[in-house]
């Protein structure tokens, strides 16, 4: 696998506390290169302007929610290859299925642990490696 500090993450959540926690967890796992966005609209702008390798997004956010962000990413030829991991408090089966059908790379329900985040990241990177 490539150097984890070379992988550039975008952490999208409207609560700064949660962004901070996710970034800290990523840092502990060796992924030191991460930036933040406070909603889907800001995230999409950043994604279109910069070069990111991985998106971790909340669902329920103002302006543009996580599902809309996911759909916008998948609809953009320049971004559609990006892995998008959803970390959200939305725990209805309907939500999980909608996210999967829209092309989410993984789905984590809050509250979550560092172990879960690591598992999902490893799994997503494995799949990317195969592709």
């Amino acid at each position: 696998m490539t150097d984890p500090s070379k992988i550039k993450f975008l952490v999208v959540d409207d609560f700064s506390t949660m962004r901070r926690i996710v970034r800290n967890l990523l840092k502990e796992l060796g992924y030191t290169n991460a930036e933040e966005a406070e909603d889907g609209a800001v995230a999409l702008q950043k994604l279109q302007a910069g070069t990111y390798d991985f998106v971790i997004s909340d669902w329920n956010m103002p302006n543009m929610d996580g599902l809309q962000l996911l759909q916008a990413v998948r609809a953009d030829p320049a971004l559609k290859h990006l892995p998008v991991l959803m970390i959200t408090a939305e725990a209805k089966k309907e939500n999980i299925i909608a996210a999967a059908q829209s092309g989410a790379s993984g789905y984590i329900v809050k509250p979550f642990t560092a172990g879960t985040l690591n598992d999902k990241l490893v799994k997503i990177f494995e799949k990317l490696g195969q592709a």
């Binding site: 725990a91 209805k92 999980i96 999967a100 789905y107 984590i108 329900v109 979550f112």
Partner: peptide, 14 residues
């Protein structure tokens, strides 16, 4: 029955 209560249920469903 319309919600999941753990990460393992999420994984199983997917």
């Amino acid at each position: 029955s319309d919600v999941v209560t753990s990460q393992s249920q999420v994984d199983d469903l997917l």
